[in-house]
């Protein structure tokens, strides 16, 4: 069984992002970049399925600039077998990304697509669900456990209030939540090995997908700052403030 793992190059989660001077977009030109954390979990899960003998090949794919090759190499250092970059300098929306991924799925014919539930830049939480829809495949979103067995994948999902387990017919799309696994660190030999793994670059135009944006960003601004308050010296003072000043407890 082949697994396709779409990954995204995003601003490192430690970076405090600010608007650009014109207030039209996030100023990330000089920011440190990394693989989206949920995508790392997706790569790890796919590699573990291969290690458990439940899958045979892991193909990582990214849609983005030529610099996203760094993240594809990082994914191959974690154990993915080969990479595909759909190259574009445009900022694509989840719908366009899902359509490009559909074209790749048609080409690669994986039985399972595992991807992060959301990227920490746009915070959309859409691409996996949209790819599943376009393929007519079932979806197991926000996974905290994945088991593959006789033509089905069982996905335990993090839902509001608890956990839900679904059985999906293969082929299927799974999106990862935090607790699914803890990604390994790439060893130096594996980082070296990853440099020699195959990485195909496909210009976005070659896939014949309409990627015209539907949503335009009119402005980007800092949210209103919350003013800090006061320090209290004791529990008694805290209780007094909450009861008599803020009046949030009786």
């Amino acid at each position: 069984m082949k697994i396709l793992v779409p990954i995204k190059r995003v601003v490192d989660y430690n970076v405090k992002v600010r608007p650009n001077a014109a207030g039209t977009e996030a100023d990330i030109a000089a920011a440190k970049m990394a693989m989206n954390p949920f995508c790392e979990i997706a790569v790890e899960e796919a590699v573990r399925l291969v290690e458990r003998g439940l899958a045979t090949e892991v193909v990582v794919v990214s849609v983005g600039s030529s610099k996203a090759q760094e993240q594809l190499r990082a994914a191959m250092a974690l154990g993915a077998d080969r990479g595909i970059l759909v190259e574009t300098d445009a900022q694509l929306e989840p719908l366009a990304v899902a359509k490009l991924l559909r074209a790749l799925v048609d080409k690669e014919q994986p039985q399972l697509v595992i991807l992060g539930k959301q990227s920490i830049d746009g915070d959309n939480n859409q691409t996996g669900q949209m790819l599943a829809a376009l393929m007519g495949w079932p979806q197991g979103t926000f996974a905290s456990a994945v088991t593959v067995d006789s033509g089905q994948v069982a996905v335990t999902r993090e839902i509001d209030g608890g956990l839900q387990t679904l059985a999906l017919n293969l082929p299927a799309v799974v999106t990862t939540d935090l607790r699914l696994n803890e990604p390994r660190y790439a060893s130096l030999p594996n980082i070296m090995k990853a440099k020699k793994k195959p990485l195909d670059i496909i210009p976005v135009a070659d896939l014949g997908v309409d990627i015209t944006p539907r949503v335009s960003t009119l402005s980007v601004a800092l949210p209103p700052e919350r003013a800090g308050g006061v320090k209290v010296a004791s529990v008694a003072e805290l209780v007094d403030k909450l009861k008599n000043h803020a009046k949030v407890i009786p």
Binding site: A26, D123, V215, L222, P223
Partner: peptide, 16 residues
């Protein structure tokens, strides 16, 4: 809507 973990507020227009 908020982007980047609530660090920024984006104002967006949908053409759909």
């Amino acid at each position: 809507r908020l982007i980047y973990a609530g660090s920024l507020v984006a104002t967006v227009r949908s053409a759909d």
